[in-house]
Structure formats: structure tokens, C-alpha cells
Amino acid sequence: MFKTVKKRWRAGVVAVAALSLGMGALVYTQGASAATFPTATGTTKLTATKAVSGSFDGGLKRFVGSGALGTSGQDEGQDPLFTLADGATLKNVIIGSPAADGVHCLGSCTISNVWWENVGEDAATFKGGANAKYTVTGGAANGADDKVFQHNGGGALTVSNFAVSDFGKLYRSCGNCKTQFKRNVVLKNITATAPGSVLAGINSNLGDTATLSGITITGDSKKKIAVCVTFKGNKTGAEPAKLTTQTAATGGDGTNCKFSTSNITYK
């Protein structure tokens, strides 16, 4: 059944780096309490997925999907607004609502200074092979009822200088894809603003690793956001079993979840 999900805009998203936008600089200071998303220079409505090979610079325009692509909700199988070919770069883009299934990387890719105002199904999905390398740098995501970054293919993802607020999981290694891989994620210089559930969800039985550093968590006085959660991944499509939950208080296990208590700061 179709489920309508109402999401909230949180103006308090905190960006975590000084970002040069090419049209002047907008500076966001790590730990600031009232940073906002950049102002869009215009709006473009996409009626079909935009394929990117090489590099696409959106000039900080807002891109929104049509009903044909999907919605702002969690329906499975929605189309992305952008597909990135192997080696492609997407930069200086604001993704508005409806965002459908965001961005799909079909191989190695770079996502630079991309802002999701209200995440739809997922913000970005990584679908490359075992040796793919994906990079997300700068930008932010708001209002992800489930996942921000979904890792369905193989390879390694690095996310740096990124902010997230009002989210389920910042990163999830696919727990029940028909083809499974050992996956690696690095999360560094991240600001996460509550409410939120998990920073990194990985499949320890498949050898996944999550390495976290420079993590700032704001608005989470009861420390409900889990830093790293391990699951037992499978190929059957069944819901994966949760194995462990690792927090700022416990630190990581050093094998699959790699972080120390000093890597997590609460504000």
C-alpha cells in the first residue's frame, strides 16, 4: 500500500567545512548551530532521469522530480533524478522535493557539494563493482526517513565534510541484496543532528568495515544515535538480523566498526 510520509525541514542542519561554490564562497564552520542550506539559483524540474557522464556542475540550481520519477516517500523501486556513469562527477546541485531515489552511481563516482533538502527513498545509491571507489564530499541531507547512503554494489565509499539531520541511517551496506560484497565505508568530519538512528550499518559476517573520525553529534542529549550497528547480511531477501550496537560510550570493536570514543563529540 502506498504510504504518504510527511517530512520536516530542519533549518538547523550543520555543514562541516568551508565550501567554495565557484560563485563566491559560503563558509560553514564545524560546530556552528544555525547554518542553513545554500540559496538555490533557480529550479529545474526533471521529467526523466538525467544521465551524467564526465562532470556535471549544477550551478547550485534546485532539481526536483516529477510524479513519473517518484515521490518524497519510501516506496521501493523509484527512479533516480541522476545516474552517474563510471567515473562521473556531480557537483553544486541542490536536490529538492520530490527527490524520488536521488542519485545512482553505476560505478566509481564523485558527489561534491550536493544538498538534499528532503530525502526521498534514499539520497544516493552506490551500485558499482567490487573495486569501485565512491567519494561524497561537502553538502548535506535532511529528512531521510530511512537511509541517506545505500551501498548495494561493492567497493569503498568515503564521505567527508558532510552534514545530516532528521535521518534513519546515514549509511547502510545492503543487508539482503541478491549479490553481496564485502564493503568498506569511511565517515570523517561528519555533523549529525538529531533525531537520528544510526550512523553506519554494516554486515560484519560479510567482512564489511566502517571507519569513523571527526564525528560531531548535536541535539542528542540522551545519546540515542548509534555510531555503528552490525548485521548478518544475506542473499535471500530476508530481513537481516541485527548483531551488535556500538556507541560513543563503548567505542568500536576494532575489526568491523573502527572508531574510538575520542572520535565522537557531542554538542
Rank of each mutant, 00 (worst) to 15 (best):
K224G: 12
G22R: 02
A40T: 00
G237Q: 08
A238S: 13
E76K: 12
Q180K: 13
L199F: 12
S55K: 14
H151V: 15
F149L: 14
V27I: 11
N184T: 14
A238F: 03
A210V: 13
V5N: 11
V229F: 09
T125R: 15
S72D: 07
Y28W: 15
K235R: 02
A34Q: 12
A163Q: 01
L187D: 08
N256E: 08
T39Y: 13
S66T: 07
G237F: 12
N142Y: 04
K133T: 04
F82M: 03
A40Y: 03
I202S: 07
G96I: 05
T83M: 04
A156L: 15
G87V: 15
K188T: 15
C257V: 02
T245A: 02
T218W: 00
K7P: 08
A18G: 10
P240I: 11
G138Y: 12
S173T: 06
N205Y: 13
Q246F: 11
A163G: 10
L206S: 08
Y134G: 04
V198A: 13
G31Y: 08
A144Y: 02
T4M: 14
G12Y: 05
N189M: 10
E121Y: 14
P80I: 04
T247D: 02
D57R: 10
L170Y: 04
N234T: 01
A123W: 06
N189H: 09
V64W: 06
S66N: 00
